[in-house]
Write a protein that binds this DNA or RNA. Structure first.
Lengths: 102, 102
DNA sequence: ATCGATGTTCGACGAATATCGATGAAAGGG
DNA sequence: CCCTTTCATCGATATTCGTCGAACATCGAT
């Protein structure tokens, strides 16, 4: 099985970092995709940037504790980290609600 | 009466901008001060940066629609913009809750 | 072993940001 | 008027950030 990327301990992540990670239009679109709580293959994320830039944003979200990345073969599947709801109560719910309301 | 700074129309502010404005430790401390829904004079904001930098962060929050600034004489009073709660439902509540819980 | 597909990392670039100190503007008090 | 207070703005600097294309790594299949 492939080496999996590492996911930070949520207790070590300051709120400002989470908000900063969410404060970008491209990343917000990524979050909107995984907001259905399902796991999504990379091709579900059709954003208007190149693939290396998408990787960069994915990494930012992962390092902010917001997403979980699972490698399977040469592919990458992304989902929300459910524990994040508990560590940043109300904040993440609020963002998801606003996103899905649009 | 002194000329008042202008406050943007909340309908024109994207969510990413609000989150980005909140995604900074200094600005988060400012928000924590006004989280009591009262109006605060500038000297209530004792942050670890110079006064011109504080002005900059204040402006960022105001332009993101989060704070209201009232000039009175040579002084400036800052408070939360209550309408923001309605435009970004749950998000702002969530942040304030997390801040006041610390 | 080679190839093709899929993502990540690297190196570079310009734009935006955080910071400071100095300067400036507006109000109030002598 | 002049001086002080308070804050905003300006100019400069250093850092971070978003972006791209090229190079690289990993896996599955041939």
């Amino acid at each position: 099985m492939p080496r999996q990327p590492d996911h930070p301990d949520l207790g070590a992540i300051p709120l400002a970092r989470v908000l900063s990670a969410l404060g970008d239009p491209v990343r917000l679109r990524i979050v909107a995709v995984v907001a259905d709580r399902k796991e999504h293959p990379r091709e579900d994320f059709e954003v208007e940037v190149g693939s290396s830039t998408l990787s960069h944003h994915m990494k930012t979200l992962r390092e902010a504790g917001l997403t979980r990345h699972r490698l399977e073969g040469t592919r990458c599947f992304v989902s929300l980290r459910e524990e994040a709801f508990q560590y940043f109560p109300h904040v993440l719910e609020g963002v998801l609600r606003t996103l899905t309301a649009e």
